[in-house]
Simulated assay, not measured.
Amino acid sequence: MTMTDKQKEIRGKILTELYLRGPISRKDIAHNTGITPATTTAVTGELINEGIIEANSLTDNDSKSKKRSGRKKVTLSITNNHSYYIGIELSRHFLTLYLINNAGELITKQHHKVEILNFTNDETINYLLAVLNNCLTNYHSFNIRAAGIAIPGHFDKQNQRIASSSEWQKFDLSRLINEAAIPLFLENNVHCMSLHEHLISTTNKGENFVFFHAVQGIFSSSIYNESLYGNNNFSVGEIGHTIVYPDGEQCECGRFGCLQNYLGGFNIMKKAQRSYNQNPHSILKKIVANPADITLPKIAEAYRLGDTAISEIIEEAINAVVVTLNNLSMLIDTSKIYLHGPLFNEMITHQILTEYLSYKNLYQGLPEIDFDIIPYEVTNGARGAAALALYHSLIWSQ
Rank of each mutant, 00 (worst) to 15 (best):
T2Y: 14
T4Q: 06
Q7H: 09
I10H: 12
L15Y: 04
L18T: 11
G22A: 01
P23K: 01
P23Q: 09
R26C: 04
T44F: 06
I48N: 06
E50Q: 13
E50M: 07
G51Y: 02
S63T: 13
K64F: 15
K67W: 11
R68A: 09
S69V: 00
K73E: 04
I78V: 13
H82N: 07
S91G: 14
R92Y: 12
R92L: 09
L95Q: 09
L95P: 06
T96V: 01
L106S: 06
I107D: 01
T108R: 02
E115K: 15
N118Q: 13
F119H: 12
F119P: 11
N121P: 10
D122N: 11
Y127F: 13
T137H: 12
R145F: 00
A146W: 08
A150L: 00
K157D: 08
Q158D: 15
Q160Y: 03
R161V: 07
A163F: 14
A163W: 08
S166P: 04
S166E: 12
W168H: 11
L184C: 13
N189V: 00
N189E: 05
N189C: 00
V190W: 05
V190P: 12
H191S: 04
M193A: 08
H196T: 10
S201A: 10
E207W: 05
A214L: 01
G217S: 12
F219Y: 15
E226K: 14
G230F: 09
N231W: 06
F234H: 10
I239F: 01
T242N: 09
Y245E: 08
Q250Y: 07
E252S: 14
N261G: 08
I268P: 02
I268F: 12
A272C: 07
A272I: 08
S275L: 09
V288F: 03
N290H: 15
N290P: 03
I294D: 08
R304E: 09
G306I: 06
I310M: 12
I310D: 01
E315Y: 04
V323A: 07
L325W: 06
N326A: 02
M330E: 13
T334H: 10
S335M: 09
Y338F: 14
F344E: 02
M347Y: 15
T349L: 03
I352W: 07
I352F: 05
K360E: 08
Y363P: 01
G365I: 03
P367F: 11
E368G: 13
I373A: 10
I374N: 04
P375H: 00
Y376T: 08
G381I: 02
A382E: 10
R383P: 01
L390T: 03
Y391C: 02
S397W: 07
